[in-house]
Amino acid sequence: MKYLISNSFSGIVTLLLTITLFPGFLFAQSQEDETTEKKSTSLSLVLTRKAGGDYQMKASLAMMTETGRTLLKGVDITFAGGDDLSQIIGKQKTNLKGSTVFTFPKDRLSLPNEEGFRTFGAVYAGCDTLEPTEDQISVKDLMIEVTSVEEDSVRSIHAAAWSVGNNGDKIPLTETDIVFYVPRMFSYLKIGEATLDSSGTAVVEFPGGLPGDETGHITVIAKVEEHDVFGNAEGETRVGWAVPARLIMKDSYRALWSQIAPTWMIVTLIIMLAGVWGHYAYAVYKLVKIKKTARKLST
């Protein structure tokens, strides 16, 4: 009995120590079982028709965990077009933020379907631990023409948006908000917003004081955003109304080349010399006093 208790006690202690110090060892099997289950993923695609007619696709891939979304970096995303996404156009890896931007050139676009829609998609093929996923968007082509007009010293930006009907006629886009931007270093800067009228045009005044390039030119973008049929579409133009951003570097002032020394130098020199020679004069004055004292004594 004593032996049994002793053995049981030592067994319990061993078990407790093992649980405390090496829990991974005991539960390794169950964890291994869990890791075999693939994690679900989600892929979101943002599509924008650029000014030239190319389509820009931005895909973001994330893994769904119990704690939330984890962005997946360095993962291959396949971009494709066509109704069944059969036209694979390219493959790109996600960046550190789990996203990648791919431009679908207009000359490789497949024909739209009978209703005029084009379909674009991004596909993640999955791996041993992650489930495959995809996202696709179907949009109609929306053309946006941006022009600049200057009348009576008032500078304005005009945007006209339309789509092309089955018989090739222009169908203006109406009653839709359109936003005007200028591209800055990291993102677009909003300069105005208007609603497309019955003729499919909108006008905003161009703000003054915007810095442009070295010649004073700047790109203005008009954008229809998240439209049910057309998605995102942009048009752009270049205007020469910005403030030229010139890096003006004055010739550095070289004191050695100047006709006269800089004031600070003259002042410093005068102070220093006056201080030093003043003390010299004091010492000489004291010598004179010594001599005078001697004369007094001798007389």
């Binding site: 030093v276 010492a283 010598l287 010594i290 001599k291 004292t293 001697a294 001798s298």
Partner: peptide, 27 residues
């Protein structure tokens, strides 16, 4: 310079030397 080491002369010399010693370091 007729120096005889009177108290007054010593004082003058002392001050002059002190001032010049300080000046000489700075210069």
């Amino acid at each position: 310079l007729g120096y005889t080491g009177t108290r007054e002369q010593k004082k003058h010399l002392h001050w002059a030397r002190n001032v010049m010693a300080a000046m000489i370091i700075a210069i």
